[in-house]
Nucleic acid binder design. Sequence first.
DNA 1: GACTCCATGTAAGCGGTTACATGATTTT
DNA 2: AAAATCATGTAACCGCTTACATGGAGTC
Lengths: 181, 181
Amino acid sequence: MSLRHAVLGLLADHPASGYDLLRTFQTSLANVWPATQSQLYTELNRLAEADLVTVAAEGPRGRKEYAITEAGRTELLHWLTEVEPQRNRRSDALLRVFFLNQVDPERARAYLEREGAVAAERHEGLRQLERSVDWDSGGDLAFYGRLTLEWGLRFTRMQQEWAVWAAEHLRDRTPGDAGRP
Amino acid sequence: MSLRHAVLGLLADHPASGYDLLRTFQTSLANVWPATQSQLYTELNRLAEADLVTVAAEGPRGRKEYAITEAGRTELLHWLTEVEPQRNRRSDALLRVFFLNQVDPERARAYLEREGAVAAERHEGLRQLERSVDWDSGGDLAFYGRLTLEWGLRFTRMQQEWAVWAAEHLRDRTPGDAGRP
DNA sequence: GACTCCATGTAAGCGGTTACATGATTTT
DNA sequence: AAAATCATGTAACCGCTTACATGGAGTC
């Protein structure tokens, strides 16, 4: 149930409408906790129902600006410091590797190489993001955003390096007859 | 819908009962695609319904041994080579980092250090697993299992190193008054 | 006979995805 | 006037989690 806390976390910084939050979820948070429009609006209504947020103002076009309440802040801090993160992660990309013995080594290598290429692309995308953001604003959010971005950079690099290593390992193991005397 | 393919992948190697598969999911696959007992039995019935697996034999205590069918193999290969992996991952641990500006730097550092410690533990656990498995059996599954394990080792190491880096970065930024002249 | 392990099934509830639906305001 | 953007809401479906429920077979 972390969408709830993602919303609280954003509103803790400053009030925003569902529409505002949506854009944040589709940009800054896209790589950490993506959320859809449908999900967001439902959750905002639930949060308001539970008095963790309130409708602070109403604007044109039915716009509702939400603000976090004291109870919301308490809940956020509780989650931040006292709730153990769920660390078990599923990876269907890795699951495929597990079953790569079902295809011939060439296809297996092709799969690994594609994984490496995709990781490299994502890495490059994050590097571009890094360049495009003003990190010197001094804001706390910028600082911690930088930390999560660094995680992403390291993660994608690790994946890329692993894929290269795995493909090589595979080649060494089954010296394909192609390109050999 | 990858539980389906995880089951097919396992049955592609050799027939097994739901109970057998369950143990595999709770051990070898635990770090890649965990599944519960409830989920597994439901999925096996669905797979049988769709003729992707069949009940090859019935044993004592109502044991049903499932085997993959030709249609099942086709579906597995399709998924393996033609379906693009879903790569967007949620991480509530990382989401917390994003909102760490809500707590004081000391608590933030404590959080990062704990993340590092957990990563180190998991790394050690995987190293032990590595030692306990006979990788020289020559089996394909052992080979590809090794690749996924290596991924885990690199991932946990990366996380640990990142956590150390992040905690240091945080210290440099806000030179706490504790332990300073 | 009691305990443990093997073995399967089902029901309630929740969070996430996809799709549909509506309408006001601003821009071109 | 038309198009783009802002803005919210809801319904169907699916997969995962938790919990409950049942019983056969082997072991002490």
